[in-house]
Structure formats: structure tokens, C-alpha cells
Computed example of a mutant assay.
Amino acid sequence: MPNDVLVLAYAGCSTCKKAQKWLEEQGVAYQVRPIVETPPTVAELGQWIPRSGVSVRKWLNTSGQSYRALGKAKVDAASDAELVSWLAADGKLIKRPVLVTGSTVLVGFQPDAYARVFASRR
């Protein structure tokens, strides 16, 4: 299987570790991109958000310090374009991990969703 699976992850994130463990147990080769040091660009987000099938607001890590620092009221008042620029500037603001493979983009780790994506690749 070609190594066309990209996982944007944070080393200190337990959910990211669970996703990587799942991929390893399934024999899925993947590349890791540190989401804090190298967050997605505005251009990448412009492609990935529509491919994820969820709104930009679902990309927010609402339990993180970056979100709390902005405040719910400011986030609620922000336009989608503002949110995208914030996500591109601060990888900790993004719900993680983000998995990108082919035309599929998954935000967060749900084993069932991962299983559906990789079931056809066996």
C-alpha cells in the first residue's frame, strides 16, 4: 500500500496516540505531520474542510486552551474565513488528529470511521 496517508497530530494528545496505534494495528502506513509546529495552511484547509463533510466549526478543539483563550463569544461571532485563518495560525485550535488520504479527510478519531475508510484498501 502506498504511503499516502497523512496524520496531523500533536505528540501530547492521547487521542492522536490512539489513532496512530489503530493505524499500526491495521498495518496502515502513514506519515505524521506535527500539527502544532506545522499547522495546515489556509489553502489546505480550503480543500480539506469541504472534503471532511463537516463545517469549519466542527474543526475547533473546543476543550483546548487556545479555544478558551479566544472565548466562545468571539468564536461564535467569527466568520468562517476568520476561523480558517485562526486554525491555520494555531494547530492547537484544531480538533485532532486530522487524517488525510485520497479524497477523504477525517477530523478527530472515531475507530468506526477509520475502519470504513481503510476497509476498501485491504
Rank of each mutant, 00 (worst) to 15 (best):
V98Q: 02
P97C: 01
V75N: 03
T104Y: 00
A113H: 14
D90L: 00
P111G: 07
V75Q: 01
R96D: 11
R96Y: 04
V100M: 04
Q110V: 13
R68V: 08
K72W: 00
K72L: 10
S103E: 15
G71A: 06
T104V: 14
W86V: 08
A73T: 14
K92V: 12
L70N: 04
A81T: 13
S103M: 06
A77W: 00
Y67V: 14
R68G: 06
S103I: 07
L87S: 11
S63G: 15
A77N: 07
A88H: 07
A78K: 05
K95F: 06
F109M: 08
D80W: 03
Q110R: 14
V100C: 03
L106N: 10
L93G: 13
V75F: 00
V98W: 01
E82V: 09
T101C: 11
S103Q: 15
L99W: 02
R68Y: 00
A69R: 15
S79F: 01
V84Q: 04
D76F: 02
F109Y: 12
V107D: 04
P111A: 14
P97R: 03
K72V: 09
L106E: 06
Q110L: 04
L70I: 07
G64W: 00
P111V: 10
F109S: 07
L99C: 04
G102V: 04
L70A: 06
A77V: 07
P97V: 02
A113M: 13
A88C: 05
V98A: 03
D76L: 07
R68F: 03
Q65P: 11
L99T: 10
R96S: 13
S85K: 13
L87G: 12
Q110H: 08
D80Q: 12
A81Q: 15
S79V: 08
T104K: 11
G102A: 02
Q110A: 12
L93Y: 05
K92P: 07
L93P: 13
K95P: 11
K72N: 09
E82D: 14
L106Q: 11
I94F: 02
K72P: 05
L87R: 08
Q65R: 13
R96W: 04
G71H: 06
A89W: 00
P111Q: 09
F109P: 04
Y67T: 12
A77H: 06
K72G: 09
A73H: 05
T104D: 10
Q110E: 13
T101H: 10
G71T: 12
Q65V: 15
I94Q: 05
A113V: 14
W86D: 10
K95M: 10
L93K: 08
W86N: 05
G71Y: 03
Y67I: 13
V105H: 02
G108M: 07
R96C: 09
G91A: 05
A81G: 08
Q65I: 13
V84N: 02
P97H: 00
D76Y: 03
S79Y: 01
S66M: 05
S85W: 00
G71V: 10
V98M: 01
L70K: 12
K92Y: 08
T101V: 14
V75L: 01
V98L: 05
S85G: 07
W86Q: 13
Y67R: 09
A69N: 15
V105N: 01
L70M: 14
A81S: 13
W86P: 08
S85M: 05
D112V: 10
T101Q: 12
A89E: 07
K92N: 15
V107R: 03
V84L: 04
D80F: 07
L93F: 06
R68N: 09
K74M: 12
K92I: 11
S66A: 15
V98P: 03
Q65K: 15
